[in-house]
Amino acid sequence: MADHDSCLVSKLSHYVNLSAADKQLLANIEKTEQDFAADELLYRSGDKIRNLYVVKTGWLIGYSHLPEGGRHITRFYHAGDILGLSTLAFSRFSTDVRAVNKAVLCPFPKSAFEKIFLQSPRLAALLFTLTSREQIILTDRLRATSSLKPSGRLAYLFLNTPDRLRITNSSMTITMNMPLTQQDLGDALGLTNVTVSRTLRAMEAKNLIKRGAGKLTLADEERLIDLCDYENRHQHLDTSWFPSS
């Protein structure tokens, strides 16, 4: 697989210079591709972990079912993400994962990490750091959903998503595809469909966002940032402590 075909190489190269050996290690876990249809279930919570997956294209959601019904979306996955990386400590998946739209994934066994940890401590440090960062991002979203008004919650999600996507798509502008439904947005942010619909209309009326043809535009990023005190966690990482290549 050529470097330009690998979303994982593209994502990791944003933070460190990867050696030819590093790229080969990553290519080994992207050898096989598997297509998933929109709304197709990849795995359920409690399923035995047989493979992890590199996302090549598409959007996916990780979610848990609530005791009183409904679901809580815990994570969105995009190109370059590794599904299951946060569950390495366990033998079974902790959430359901479903494709939002058509997706292409590269399945690989958990044992593939053995070579990465043995042969490239620098690459292992980067994967560890990315997993640690996800905990901070999860804390940011928890803060948004527990303390902000609906407009602030939506602003956080609308700002965080393109910042994540830009790591593997540097040409991305303030307009992005938006395959998420109002139900998806509500399940991720603790809002009802009615509240999401009303808040989106209000944000459009205030020229904060624009919607149409399955796309969403951040019409006023500065005001959106003010709504949720947003901080971009994706652009930079402290790699000063990483082992030398």
Rank of each mutant, 00 (worst) to 15 (best):
A213F: 10
N207E: 02
R201S: 09
L123C: 06
K115H: 08
E134I: 00
T195V: 15
R164H: 10
L123E: 01
N207W: 04
K102S: 09
L130W: 10
R164N: 14
L105V: 10
T145C: 12
S151Y: 12
K210Y: 02
D163C: 13
R211E: 01
T181E: 06
K115A: 08
S171F: 01
T192E: 08
L216T: 00
A205H: 03
T195N: 11
F117N: 09
N177W: 01
T168D: 12
R133H: 06
N193Y: 04
A213Y: 05
P107A: 09
S120H: 10
L127W: 13
R166H: 01
L123H: 14
N169A: 00
I174T: 13
L138N: 05
R153A: 15
Y156N: 14
P109S: 10
T131I: 06
T181M: 03
C106V: 08
L165Q: 12
L191R: 05
L200N: 07
Y156S: 13
K215D: 08
G212W: 14
R166T: 00
T139M: 14
A99Y: 04
F158D: 08
A155I: 07
G190T: 15
R141P: 08
F117A: 15
R164M: 13
N169T: 01
G186F: 03
A213C: 03
L200S: 09
Q119H: 03
I174W: 09
K110R: 14
P107S: 15
N160P: 01
N207T: 12
A112L: 06
G152R: 10
S120W: 00
L130C: 04
K206I: 07
T161L: 07
L154R: 08
E204V: 03
G152S: 08
K102L: 15
T129D: 06
R143V: 06
Y156D: 04
G214N: 06
P121M: 07
P162A: 13
A103N: 07
L154A: 08
T139I: 14
K149P: 04
R143H: 11
T145F: 03
L189R: 02
S170M: 01
T161H: 07
L191Y: 08
P107F: 10
G152V: 06
L154H: 05
L159I: 00
P179H: 04
L148R: 09
L118K: 14
S171Q: 06
K149Y: 05
S147P: 05
L157S: 09
T168Y: 04
P121Y: 13
A202H: 08
R133V: 00
A124G: 12
Q183T: 15
Q182I: 11
K115E: 11
F108P: 15
T199K: 01
P121D: 15
S132I: 05
P121A: 10
D187L: 04
T199L: 07
I167T: 10
K215C: 00
S197V: 04
